[in-house]
Each structure stands twice: as C-alpha cells, then as structure tokens.
Design a protein around this nucleic acid. Sequence first.
DNA 1: AAATCACGCAACCGCAGTGAT
DNA 2: TATCACTGCGGTTGCGTGATT
Length: 212
Amino acid sequence: MEGAGSREYRKGLWTVEEDRILMDYVKVHGKGKWNRAAKVAGLKRGGKSCRLRWMNYLSPSVKRGAFSEEEDDLIIRLHKLLGNRWSLIAGRIPGRTDNQVKNHWNTHLSIKLGVKKGKSKISSSKFSKKIEASFNTKLSSNERLIPSNKTETELQNVIEDSHEKEIEITSTHEPILTSDCYENFWLFNDDSYLFTPSLMELLDESLESFMA
DNA sequence: AAATCACGCAACCGCAGTGAT
DNA sequence: TATCACTGCGGTTGCGTGATT
C-alpha cells in the first residue's frame, strides 16, 4: 500500500534536482517499476508520482508549448466521438499527454465551445458541417454520438484506419517542415510530425460513413 | 506598492485492470 | 484461484503567476 507505513513521501512540485535524479535513473534502468525506481534512486516520492513526472514532463517525447489550431481541431473532433477518453485522444496527437489534452480541453476548448454552459461558440470554418451540427446538438461533454448499432471498438478502428491511411499518404510526400511553424507539413517516422488536411478529411469521411 | 482575483497547469487521489506468483 | 504489486486512467485539487483593482 503506497503511502502506508513509515515511509514518507514528498509532495508538490518537483525540484530540478529530483528531475535530474529521475532522468539519470531512467537513462540507466529504463522506464517501469516506478516504485522500485523511487527507492533505488533515493527519491522521496511514490512510484506513481515518478511515473507521472516522467510521462507528463521529463520524457523526451513530450511536446511543450501551445496547442496549434490543428491540434485543437483534432481534439474537438475526437472528443466529440470518444468523450472524456483523454488517453485515447492523446494517443492520436503526437507529443501530447492525456494530462495536457485534458487540461487544454478544460481550460480552453470546453469554454471556447461553450460546452459547460450549454451553448456552442464554434466559429472555425474548418469543422465539417456534419460534425459541427452534431456537436451543437449534444451539449454534454460526456455524451457521445456513437450509433446504437456500432461499438466503441468499431469506432476506434475507424480512427485507427484513418491514421494508417494518413501515414500511407504522407510517406509518399517530401517534407516541407519549417522549424517555427507547425502548419502545412507532414508526418514522418522521426520526431517531426504534422496534421495535414488529408488526415482531417480522412477522419471526417470515415466518421461520417461510420455515423451514417 | 500591496492586495485580490483569475487562470493555467502540474500533481494528487481513488479506482480499475493486468500480470506475476 | 487468490493475492499482491504495479500500471494506467479520469476527476479533482491547489499552487504559481500574471492581471487587475
């Protein structure tokens, strides 16, 4: 039982020194076994705290900084269908964690869309008419528009397929990535990525036929 | 300049699922 | 089969900081 017994755990924000210790530990031993990691590394933190710190902050795959419009768009689309399944949504957005997506939704997107107050303020022309229309009819953040004759697994497969198709398409293109702009570039196997119009279109097409 | 407010985000909590023994 | 350790998830809290009064 974590927290029980004589062992006392530090709480609150991580210090630079704690970060360094955890980073060093992961470099040598790899991820996992966080409870043991905390003890072996000499951190006065629980395993869960170590795991969270690594996953949400220290991991080199975590992307920092503001969310792009494309990311916002994708989150909104996926949330519309998946509800508060933050890990699933985050899994479709390279470099973003479930915590980041959840926080971003709660502090920006839900307000922007007027979900909590029951009114939509969607203004972006990027939304497909059908997705926007159906979103406006369902105000609760927990409601999803999965047809009664479909399963969530089928829905996830649709999203997976769209992503697969996207990768297929982008693999045939040359990169047009710029260092300071996330717009209009493609997805690759290295750390760089992008949201292309084709991904959005594929997702819309797939979801529309799924919902039909 | 000090006090208060509001916002954004990191971190915590409780629970469920999974795998090893 | 039961138990335990561990991981992962979503909801929530509370701290830090900038804006406002």
